[in-house]
Design a protein around this nucleic acid. Structure first.
Length: 302
DNA sequence: AAGTCGTGGTT
DNA sequence: TAACCAAGACT
């Protein structure tokens, strides 16, 4: 069966225009790819790169990460945002070590069973790390498909139709299939962007239903984010930042976001961080999870 | 299944 | 400048 012309145009474009991102280096391991996918969840590429490099330098294998306490992962995560991803990545490393002998699994089902890995990440790792043949759908790909195929400016909710659409376009050859997934994602990230698409540079503009229809605004925006200023998220961020910067030393609870105007809200934030396993609180002393040095360790120090 | 979860850059 | 956006996952 011949490769779909849309797929072949996109992969041809990708071969010439792919950004050389570090996790795309040939021979990069599955663990490195997995770490990149965790960090890239809702975080821009340019912010991820330096963190990805230092993370892998410190923890080159799942087992090496699993052998350190989660507190170290949360600290190392620094200001990447959504810090529970650090916790989940640490837990995934433990699971990989325990269930898979320290080797990142290759099957989508096994990947899906790991903490913090959902439908996108499982497929991304299987495809980009192992060259398995699956359709991958992220927000970029959803947007590209919505525009090219459905003629909409914005995609609706994630649907299994996107997965089916990618599956229908997927080249038979595994390597080509992986390239096509990466190419579609790359187009969405660099050309067919949410805000100002650069249709002049798009290799498949001729095939775009949205363009053919005159770029109709289909409304259908994503729900707007709540104001960050004064939000629970902001307090949580401040509390965690304080603990990170103090680590490995613990802090008295009063020293967490001490200037926050709303005491009740601050206390709720602390409780929610405890519930999430991001911090621990004992006798009014707070620390990162299992971050306090044991008495043995402290007394053994010179 | 809609809400929630950080942080920083861009418009 | 306030709003928008960024390789999602979990509950």
């Amino acid at each position: 069966m011949a490769v779909d012309p849309l797929a072949s145009d996109l992969t041809a474009w990708f071969r010439e225009n792919a950004r050389d991102l570090p996790w795309r280096e040939p021979g990069i391991g599955a663990w490195a790819v997995l770490v990149s996918e965790f960090m890239l969840q809702q975080t821009p590429v340019n912010r991820v790169i330096p963190h990805w490099e230092s993370w892998l330098r410190r923890w080159p294998t799942p087992a090496s990460l699993a052998s350190d306490p989660p507190a170290e992962a949360v600290s190392q995560w620094a200001n990447l945002g959504y810090p529970r991803r650090a916790l989940w990545l640490h837990r995934a490393a433990e699971e990989i070590t325990a269930r898979h002998g320290g080797v990142v699994p290759r099957r989508v089902d096994d990947l899906l069973a790991l903490t913090g890995i959902g439908d996108y990440t499982a497929r991304a790792v299987a495809v980009f790390a192992y060259g398995e043949r699956h359709p991958v759908v992220d927000t970029n790909i959803r947007r590209v498909l919505a525009r090219i195929i459905d003629g909409k400016s914005q995609p609706g909710a994630p649907s299994r139709r996107d997965l089916d659409a990618m599956a229908a376009l997927l080249p038979e050859d595994r390597a080509d299939a992986a390239l096509f997934n990466a190419a579609t994602m790359e187009l969405g990230a660099t050309i067919c962007t949410a805000r100002k698409p650069r249709c002049d540079a798009c290799p498949v503009a001729k095939r775009c239903a949205w363009r053919a229809a005159g770029f109709p605004d289909t409304g259908d925006r994503r729900p707007r984010q709540a104001t960050y200023e004064g939000s629970d998220r902001q307090v949580r961020g401040l509390v965690l930042r304080g603990l990170r910067e103090a680590a490995p030393a613990p802090l008295p609870a009063q020293a967490l976001a001490p200037d926050w105007p709303d005491q009740m809200q601050r206390d709720r934030a602390i409780d929610s961080l405890i519930a999430d396993g991001l911090i621990e609180l004992e006798d009014g002393i707070a620390c990162l999870p299992r971050g306090r040095r044991s008495l043995v360790e402290v007394s053994a120090a010179p």
